[in-house]
Structures are given as structure tokens and as C-alpha cells.
Simulated scan of single mutants.
Amino acid sequence: MTTEDLQTIDFAEGAVLLIDKPLDWTSFDAVRKIRNLIKIKKVGHAGTLDPLASGLLIVCTGKFTKRINEYMAQEKEYTGTFTLGATTPTYDLESEPVNIQSINHLSVTDIENATAGFLGEIDQVPPIHSAIKIDGKRVYELARKGVDVKLEPRKITIKEFEVNASALPIVSFRVVCTTGTYIRSLANDFGGALGCGAYLSSLRRTRIGAFTTEEAVTMETFEKVMRERKAKASDQLQ
């Protein structure tokens, strides 16, 4: 998707927008911003990214909102970092590290070889600090109130899982997985398998199906083009 494409898209008729979501934005923040800029109510995203994650967000407008579930079901690729030697209640940096442990007993080979145990179809328990609903209530809301939440494991498939452990305790990774995979849970489970704990310290979604971040535009660029488009339309009316 180029800036030239954005100049001519009929948003009301329907469009698929590839947005590079910035850090600290919720997925709905991006949708709300786009909705305000294009003045179309029918706007939705195809797969949530947490505020602490950046990368590819598919946003659909008009008739293409009917295809949101189709895009959500496609495989995804992520890159990022795990930090070994501790855990967090949220499995990421939304909460403070606890259970600090030594990683001196681990070799780089040990860490890289541990990925094999997560390849293929596996059972994964989602984080209790997630938007999954139990009896109509978000489990993260229950968890914050101290309610003992238990979630059942779900079948997911990890198609590719690579790590680079050359900068310990930081481990860089790349994962290709099916929809429904929680990378936060993968971080926590990976640390458990190593016996030292781990949490997700950065995350970027780089691909959804055939769409990649290389094709995406930043929110800053999108806003700039929409303001230029509005100004051009105003000039033509004068």
C-alpha cells in the first residue's frame, strides 16, 4: 500500500489498509484515529495487537469489514525479544519482573535447542491477563481483582521458532504461528522449559498471511496523506 494508493481509495466502498501500529497505541486507538480521519463509521481491525507491541495491523473499511474474520484466521509472523531469568504476572512488561533466577547454568546451545519442544501442534494456556471472556467478563479484569482464574489450554501450531541467544539474558526470536497464539504465553512457557523463567520484553508483528510490514504505512504517514487529500478536495471545490 503506497501513499499514492491512499490518495485515491474509496473508503466508503471498501478498502484494506495496512498500518504499522506504533508502540503504546491500542488497536482500537488506530481504528478510532482512522475513522475520524476518513469520516467513515464502518471501520474495524483484523487482529488485536497489545499496546506494547508494534507492527502490522490490518484495518478494513466499508464492505471489506465482512472479510475481517478471513484475515484474522491467517497465519502470523512475529519478531521480538524474551528476557530470561525472571517472570512477570502479565508475561510481559506491563508488570514488574519477579522470581529472579540465575541463567548461568544455561548455554547458548541449550537455549537454542529448547525451541524444538514448541514446534508443531501444542497445547497453550492463554495468559490470565488477556481479553478472553468468562461468564461475560474479561479475565484480565478478574485477575486484577485477585480472582483465581483458570483457563483451559488451546490447540495452536508453531510452524517456525528461531532464537538468537547471543546477548543473554535477552533472547531475540522469530515465530510463525497459527491464529490464537499468545506470544506472551510462549515466552512464559519457554522460560519454564529452561527452568529459569522468561517474559516477553518486545514484540513486533511482521506478517499476516501474505501481507507484510514492508507494505504498511505508519499512522503518521496515513494522517499526513489524509490531510493532504482533504486539502486537495477543498481546493477543487473553490
Rank of each mutant, 00 (worst) to 15 (best):
201 S>Y: 09
202 S>V: 11
202 S>P: 01
203 L>S: 08
204 R>I: 01
204 R>S: 07
205 R>P: 10
205 R>A: 07
205 R>D: 12
206 T>A: 11
206 T>D: 14
206 T>I: 12
206 T>P: 04
206 T>L: 09
206 T>W: 09
206 T>S: 13
208 I>G: 04
209 G>L: 11
209 G>W: 10
209 G>H: 10
210 A>C: 06
211 F>K: 14
211 F>E: 14
211 F>S: 13
212 T>L: 01
212 T>E: 04
213 T>P: 03
213 T>M: 08
213 T>R: 04
214 E>G: 05
214 E>P: 00
214 E>N: 12
214 E>M: 05
214 E>Y: 06
214 E>D: 15
214 E>A: 14
215 E>K: 02
215 E>F: 00
215 E>R: 08
215 E>A: 06
216 A>V: 08
216 A>L: 02
216 A>C: 06
216 A>Y: 06
217 V>F: 02
217 V>M: 15
217 V>G: 01
217 V>R: 14
218 T>A: 01
218 T>C: 04
219 M>T: 02
219 M>P: 07
219 M>K: 07
220 E>N: 10
220 E>R: 04
220 E>M: 06
220 E>Q: 12
221 T>W: 07
221 T>A: 11
221 T>C: 09
222 F>H: 05
222 F>W: 00
222 F>G: 08
223 E>G: 00
223 E>Y: 00
225 V>Q: 12
225 V>N: 08
226 M>T: 07
226 M>R: 06
226 M>E: 13
226 M>K: 03
227 R>W: 10
228 E>V: 00
229 R>W: 12
229 R>G: 05
229 R>A: 03
229 R>Y: 01
229 R>I: 02
